[in-house]
Structures are given as C-alpha cells and as structure tokens.
Nucleic acid binder design. Structure first.
Lengths: 239, 239
DNA sequence: CGAGAGATTGAAACCAGTCAAAAAGGGTGG
DNA sequence: CCACCCTTTTTGACTGGTTTCAATCTCTCG
C-alpha cells in the first residue's frame, strides 16, 4: 500500500537532477530536505513576490512557468526572465533584503519555499550545497550577460531566433520536444523581454513562417529548421 | 618608525568600507586578510582574465578602472559593465569553472587576487563573510536587471543620462566630485555598453551640451544640471 | 611636427515604433 | 451549445529614431 501523503522532500522530487539538490550525495540529500520549508501554489496570473516586498526565501519551481519583471519609477517595465521547473527565483532579494522585481505565474504553478537563512546555515556545513548556491547565482549573472548582448547588439530577427532556441533547449532538458513548444507568454511579454514591441514580435514570427523556418499557430510553435534559426542568431561571415 | 613595507592586507586598505571586508568586525578582518593571496598589476589595455580562461579567483579592484565584455561567436561584442575601485570581478566564472567574459583595464590598475576556494572555505566559518559574498553576487544580478531595463526600453538620451548619473554616483561614493568626472572609456565603449553606436553617443553628448545640461571637453564631463538628467531618465508624466 | 586614434558632424537609409483596424481565439453566461 | 465580449494577435501605412557611410576635426603621443 502506498502511503496517503508523500513526504514533501527533495529526495523524492523528480526535479532533483535539475534543481537545488543537483550533485548532492544521498546523505546530503536527506539533510537538504529540511531546507524546503513548505510548498506554495500560485494561480495563473498570481504573484509569488513583488518589488519592494521583504525578502525571506528563494523559490524553486516545481511546476508551472513564471516571468520576472522590473519596473522603473515612471512605470516602464521590462520582463527580465522566464523561469520554468527546476529554476530558482528570488536571488535579487538578497542584497537589500527586499525584492526588486515581480515574479508572476504565467500558468498555475507550485514552488518550493526555501528560507534563505536556512540555506545559508546548511551551506556552511555541506560544501557541495554551498558550491551549488554559488553556481546558481553565477549562472544567473552569466545568463543576464547573454541577454545584455542580445538587447545591445541584435536585430529583431536575431533576438526572436535566440529566444526560441533558448526556450526549446531548456524545455528539451526537461524531457520535452526539441522542435515543438507552447509559449506560455503573450507577444507583449516576449517583446518586453526582447526589447521589442508586440507588433514587431508578431511580424517577425510571420516572417519566420513565410521563410518556412517555423510553424506558428497562436502559442503553438513548431521549429521546422533549427539550423536556420542558429544561422540567424550567429550569421556566418563568408569572406 | 614606520616599517618599510606595509603588509598587504584588507585591514589597512582604505577601501575596506566599500570592498570585500565591508561589515566585518576587526577580528574577522584579520582572518579575511588570508583571503587576499596576492596583488596583481594590470597595465592600461591589459587583460586581467579572458573568455574561456580557467576560473580560480575573484578580483577586487584596488586602483584603476576596468570594463568587462562578452562576445558572441560571430564576433559581435558587448561591454557588460565598467568596474571601479572596491568592486569585484570574476563572478561569471563560478558556474562553469571558466570565465565567460574578458576583463580589460582601461587605465593602469591593481587588483587583489582572492582564490575562490579560500573564499568558500572562510565563508563557511565567518557568517558575515558568507552573507557578504551572497550580497555581492545578488547586487550584480540586480545591477544587470537595471541594465536590461535600460537596453530594453530606453531611448538614446535616457540611456546616456542614466549612465552618467550612475557613474557620478559611484564616483561620489568614492570621494570624488558629484558633478565632475573623467570618462575612462571611449565613445565606442560607452556605446557598446548602452547598445548604441559611437556616433549616437557623440550626438547625444552634443545635444546635452546644447541644452546646457553638461559641459563636455573630450573625456572630461561636468554636470551642470543633474535634475535635468534625472528628468530625462524618468520623464514625469503630467496629466 | 606628423601620424594615428578618437570624436564630431552631416546626409541618407533603414529598422522598429506608432497608430489604427480587423481577425482570431477563449471564456462566460444565457 | 451558441452568442457575445474581451483579450490577444495580425497586418497595413506611416513616422521617427538610430544606424550607416563619409568627411572633417581634435587631441595625444612618439
């Protein structure tokens, strides 16, 4: 007989190869279970944390899909990232003890709440956890470097191509198709992330369809020619 | 009599309020001195570390001024930041054990080399150091969020205004003037950072001069009207 | 003093933005 | 189950900010 309730724990989470416990031994895994204080469900459109809110915890996504966005004083805002299962949110809050962005669920979601003081405590004892926390933060820095390159020097087609390739690659790492994906976000949110207007995103999708590179039906995208996408991102200079 | 050589140590560094040892007690300060393994001088134009190089250490700037830049495969590159005294470089290297950007000195510089395994070791023992390391990484994430907002949604004038205000604010924190600064980088490097061409940077400077907001003489900039700059960055919506 | 890197300025081209209208979905309530 | 409303998406025409290309100018440094 299976027990009625399965223990809330990293050790039996199917994301353990991707998420916080990555690279930990079984013994260490048991100890990290204490870090996950609780789970929290967030409905589509719901807010996990918002700009200005007190920072207490990091959040690991169990299911669902999020966007994070920052806003300037005059109301402009910018999507800074899209996060999926196994990814960690909330790192922005550490420096000033309050969050500097909003985290919004783009579909019904569930996250593991990891109080940061517990993480710090435990990572003093478990070297591989300490290392892992550092890597997660460093990975975010490197990711943002890439986005800066994209925003600073790419044209609309290059940005959208890079975006699609990145999404599909991350989905593939989670066992989904390499060529098909369902966008969880609107054209406007894609545009905000890529520094483009929603009309430009739409037009660029249409162009890719005309060129036979992708099929698009609303939010369903099928990549017909990944090589072309890669060529768009990194044009080969021939001379 | 003063000793002939002053010990290479955080405890007698005039940047200790700004740099790695920030917020540590005197006792802890003595221990963190061990982290700084050595100093390294980098000449103007010299490279501290480059993309692909093995990651071993973080670097705290003692004197001088750096830029960091990433490059895409097809040769495009993007300045991801300008760093000055007391700021830490190399965080990008943690995640994959090699650096993913270049760090180039824009003037003769000296850095403190801090082997990362020593930092990890010591931050297991000294809570405030652990916290500080986390804050430094988080600060970099938040900074990059701000740059994404800038690159994604601001126009040329807004970008340059934000850039000048940011620079002068950081210089002021280091005891320099609130209204005068010397740019250590070329128009092209500013443009790369701001996602603009060098001509656009130059034109925008000229426009600010015409508007009486700044005086510019080559790399010397005097801010005549900081309020105007702030208004440009955050236009007041009046309705 | 001359050479070369860096900066400024002008004119034309172009990519993305803006404004506007229409089409396509998706969800809700009768 | 269908009609209707609202959000999202697409497409067109036009505008405008930035880039591109080119010429000139200014400093710095050997």
């Amino acid at each position: 007989m299976t027990p009625l309730t399965i223990k809330v724990a990293c050790s039996n989470c199917n994301l353990r190869e991707l998420c916080m416990p990555m690279g930990l031994s079984d013994a260490e895994l048991d100890r990290i279970d204490d870090v996950v204080a609780s789970r929290r469900k967030v409905k589509r459109g719901g807010i996990l944390f918002r700009n200005g809110e007190k920072f207490t915890s990091l959040y690991a996504i169990r299911t669902g899909f999020f966007k994070t966005c920052v806003a300037s004083e005059d109301g402009r805002d910018q999507v800074t990232g899209f996060q999926m299962a196994g990814e960690v949110m909330g790192l922005d809050g550490i420096v000033n003890d309050y969050h500097t962005c909003d985290a919004v669920a783009l579909e019904d979601a569930e996250v593991c709440v990891m109080p940061f003081d517990r993480i710090e405590e435990l990572s003093r004892e478990i070297n591989s956890l300490q290392r892992h926390v550092h890597k997660i933060m460093s990975r975010e820095i490197v990711r943002e470097n890439g986005v800066m390159l994209l925003l600073g020097s790419m044209r609309a087609e290059e940005r959208l191509a890079a975006f699609l390739l990145n999404l599909v690659q991350r989905l593939h790492a989670r066992g989904f198709s390499q060529s098909e994906l369902v966008l969880r976000m609107t054209r406007e949110e894609i545009g905000s992330y890529l520094g483009l207007k929603l009309e430009t995103v739409s037009r660029t999708f249409s162009k890719f369809v005309d060129d036979g590179i992708v099929e698009v039906k609303q939010r369903h995208v099928r990549i017909l020619n990944a090589e072309s996408l890669k060529d768009i991102v990194n044009p080969k200079v021939c001379d």
